[in-house]
């Protein structure tokens, strides 16, 4: 059985936010929605200063608070570890958003089609192509459960979040953020396979996970130093 995991090498991350960009392009998320978010910090006083970055995808927790609280089972965990949202079942109560300690959920407060950086509906739309929210990949159903889970900006009034690019994974690709990272700070793979990239990294490195003490069993591992430490100031 595949067991997907995500490894972030903080010693490599340089805060370019190519992952954020890749995610937005790939998943067509609306304005103000960042399924991949990068915390940026500085520490010290001039001239002895240092910058630090912490990329934050969805943690796809094994004991996911969002899955537990969902009153309709729209948020669910797959056998391979992905935590996904069924856009056709979600009633928009936002309980998952309230329950999540990591703040990875984004609600479609506005009608997504009217909430892009480009007005795709207007006649003079700069790119005369299918608008991204009509991406055929996102109309499909995925996994054993056959549910509508991929991509963003589909319905108003539902919650969306990082899917680890389920539509890419199922086609043998890696998540867009991982592929686009210029310094390979983000790794993705099968934790159940000891020969995989991520498994080897976790054996060779000291790792930690965000808010581990909350018992959520997140599947995103941070190597290359602790994610948050004393003296960091958010930028």
């Amino acid at each position: 059985m595949v067991k997907y995991g995500f490894v972030v090498d903080l010693s490599r991350c340089m805060g370019c936010r190519a992952c954020v960009e890749a995610c937005k392009v790939e998943n067509n998320t609306a304005q103000g929605v960042f399924w991949m978010h990068v915390f940026r910090f500085e520490e010290g006083r001039y001239p002895n200063v240092n910058l630090a970055f912490v990329p934050r995808p969805c943690m796809h927790c094994d004991n996911a608070p969002c899955v537990k609280v969902c009153p309709v089972g729209a948020r669910y965990k797959r056998e391979d570890g992905l935590v996904l949202t069924d856009y056709e079942r979600c009633i928009g109560c936002r309980y998952c958003e309230v329950a999540c300690p990591y703040g990875v959920n984004y609600f479609n407060w506005k009608i997504p089609a009217d909430n892009y950086y480009i007005d795709w509906k207007s006649e003079g739309n700069p790119v005369q192509v299918i608008p991204p929210y009509r991406n055929p990949d996102f109309q499909e159903k995925y996994g054993k459960e056959q549910r509508r889970v991929a991509g963003g900006g589909q319905y108003v009034g539902v919650v969306e979040k990082c899917t680890w690019c389920v539509h890419r994974i199922e086609n043998g690709l890696k998540p867009a953020c991982v592929t686009n990272c210029p310094v390979s700070a983000l790794r993705f793979g099968d934790l159940a396979d000891p020969e995989s990239d991520v498994s080897k990294l976790l054996v060779r490195n000291r790792w930690s996970r965000l808010l581990e003490e909350r018992g959520t069993e997140p599947r995103v591992y941070y190597i290359g130093g602790p994610p948050f430490r004393e003296g960091l100031r958010e930028v």
């Binding site: 729209a74 079942r89 979600c90 109560c93």
Partner: peptide
């Protein structure tokens, strides 16, 4: 409070699951 009040019956539909 619901974003999709039109889907409120889902609460009953998937009640036993949740």
């Amino acid at each position: 409070d619901l974003g999709r009040p039109d889907r409120i019956l889902n609460v009953f539909l998937y009640y036993f699951e949740r």
